[in-house]
Every structure is written in C-alpha cells, then in structure tokens.
Amino acid sequence: MPVLTCRGLRKEFGDHVVLDGLDLTVEEHQVVALIGASGSGKSTLLRCVNLLEELDDGIIELDGEEISDPRVDPDLVRRRIGMVFQSYNLFPHLTVLENVTLAPRKVHRRVRAEAEAQARELLDRVGLGAKAGAYPDRLSGGQQQRVAIVRALANSPRLMLLDEVTSALDPELVGEVLAMIRDLKADGMTMVLATHEMGFAREVADQVCFLDGGTVVEAGPPAQVLGEPTQPRTRQFLHRIIEAGRL
C-alpha cells in the first residue's frame, strides 16, 4: 500500500487555481522530488498534504486512511508527518534542545528526560550536539535548517515533507543540509521534497515529478524526466534551468 496517495487535488486562492486535479502516489521508502517554476503549486501541495491548507477538491490518503475527510482530527494526522520549511521556522525563544523536544513532550507526552535523551542522540548524529543549549539566532542557516529537520524527525514521522529546504541558504551551506537528507534516504525515510536543486533531485530521488499549471505534467525516474523529457513544457523548463546554470 502506498504511504501517500493524492487524487484530483484542487486548491484555489481567490481566482487563482494553484492545484488543478493533481495526482501523486508515494510508495514506502520512496523519495519523490517535485520540480517546477515558482508558483507551480509545489509548496501548496505539501501544505495541503499536511492539512495546513484546506482542499477545494480531491482526496488525500495516508497509509490508506483518508485524511482529507473533515471528520479526521488534523492534529493526529500532523503527528505522523514531518514538515520542514524553506525559512526553517525554528522557535526563536526556545533553545535548540527545547525546539526539538517540544513536540515529543507536549504532543506525545514523553517525560522530559526521555525526550531530551532522544533529542541529544539525534543532534549528536548530525554533529549539532554541542549546539543543544544555543538559541536559533546564534546558528548559521545550515545549522538552523538541520535543527528543523531534527525537530521534525523527533516525532518519528511516517512521511517527511521538505519544502525547498535549501533555497534560503548561502551556497556553501547547502551541502550540509543535502548530506543530511541523503542519510535520511539511506535510513529508508519516505520523503516528498520540493526543490530547485536539479542535481540533487537527480541523485537522491526515486521519482521526479514536474509540476506546471497545478498538475503533474511529467513523472518518472530522474534520468528520464531530467535527461530525456517527453513533454514540451518539461523541456522548456529544463532549458531555462540550464541557461541559468543550475543543472
């Protein structure tokens, strides 16, 4: 059974149709990369899956359960999904350790010592153990984003949604975040990531989906979608990316 199934998703903001009958299936341990121009609906899709946006039509299933049903408690769904944002969104008034342990303690009702031990272990694994007591504004962008990923992982999510997690970073800091995502894939984490890093998508994704006009225009293995695209719109998009020197 797929971890995530989206069928006919539709989302409008005023007159603007952002998602227009979008379909997507993500199997267990699979990494799906969403590519496409700004405004093609990548972020909106991720926010809809995490129930941060209300759908205007369509069905989303997580492990076979329809989570787009309004009777489903969104808080229970979100515990099973980890989300990482472009601008990190760490809580500035909490230390790194408190950021990571907030959800385990308040949502999963773990005792403090247990939550902190787990958080320290996760932070140590990504080389941020020494920063546990620091406030986010003392960290580099790359470190902040890695803490944000650890914070999402502390919930032991079934699925990770990564929304352009390297777009706000200085070029020399992108590598450390990508390395962490690579490790997640090696651990078998199921992930959907919206990205502008075509090289990374090619390397890490099992499937690349090109979004345009609110639908998946082309989907397939990275070598096919990025190497020999069949759709003219995909070719056009990749051509612009190559011109900008990003592939």
Binding site: L52, R78, G82, N89, L90, L102, R151, A152, N155
Partner: peptide
Amino acid sequence: QLAAARSLGL
C-alpha cells in the same frame, strides 16, 4: 511560527 507549531502536531 503557527504553521511550524501545528505541523508538529501541537
């Protein structure tokens, strides 16, 4: 900040 908190299940 709200989106980040809610996405954690709070």
